[in-house]
């Protein structure tokens, strides 16, 4: 059981308030949708959830089986966004194995190959990422985010650069994540996540 609790969250950049006083609690098998117009702070909000940005005030609390987790939170989170870049000079498989080794987890080449097959990159696992198209890179990001089996999956604009087949794969990944943990989706396209348990609307804030 995993819980994600956001309390009175606020972020300010150079005295400009992006959002403030946002609170929401999401539990296992639940989904959170984050919406808002361009510049409303959706990416900033999900980056704070992913622990890569510090909030100006407020708290993000992640609990596992009732115990508040304080360190190595990055191992509980998978993250996909258009602005996240993978290592171009490494192959697709090397990128996945790098994700495991940097997380100090067991390097499992078979799992990496299986996951690449799942996102239709099985035939390109030994090619350097610099040779990939933007759509292929986006698919690889999903494998990268899932290789350590995170209980929390955060997706920022999940369908960007994807073709019809890729969108189908991502919908399947989102469905599976809803069954096994928490899914957070930041999007302007309401069809990306039609059914959701919680919503944060950043429009018109602060």
């Amino acid at each position: 059981m995993i819980d994600l609790e956001v309390t009175a969250l606020a972020k300010t950049f150079n005295r400009r308030s992006i959002f403030r006083d946002i609170s929401v609690k999401v539990q296992s098998a639940q989904t959170l949708r984050v919406i808002g117009q361009n510049g409303a702070g959706k990416s900033t909000f999900v980056k704070i959830l992913a622990q890569v940005l510090t909030p100006t005030s407020g708290k993000v609390k992640i609990s596992r089986d009732g115990r508040v987790m304080k360190s190595h939170l990055h191992n509980l989170i998978g993250f996909v966004s258009p602005y996240m870049q993978l290592y171009d000079e490494f192959t697709a498989e090397e990128n996945l194995l790098l994700s495991l080794s940097l997380r100090a987890q067991t390097v499992d080449s078979t799992a990496a190959k299986n996951l690449l097959g799942r996102v239709s990159l099985g035939g390109r696992s030994n090619d350097q990422v610099r040779t990939f198209s933007s759509g292929m890179k986006q698919r690889l990001k999903y494998a990268f985010a899932l290789i350590h089996r995170p209980p929390i999956l955060i997706l920022d604009e999940p369908m960007s650069n994807l073709d019809t087949e890729g969108i189908g794969t991502v919908r399947q990944i989102m469905k599976e994540q809803q069954d096994r943990g928490i899914l957070v989706v930041a999007t302007n396209d309401h069809s990306d996540l039609e059914k959701f348990d919680h919503q944060v609307d950043l429009s018109g804030r602060p």
Binding site: V52, Y83, Q85, Y87, L102
Partner: peptide, 13 residues
């Protein structure tokens, strides 16, 4: 420059 800082932040302490 390559935009991988965010990736590294997501992967390690």
């Amino acid at each position: 420059e390559r935009g991988t800082s965010l990736t590294l932040q997501l992967l390690s302490t």
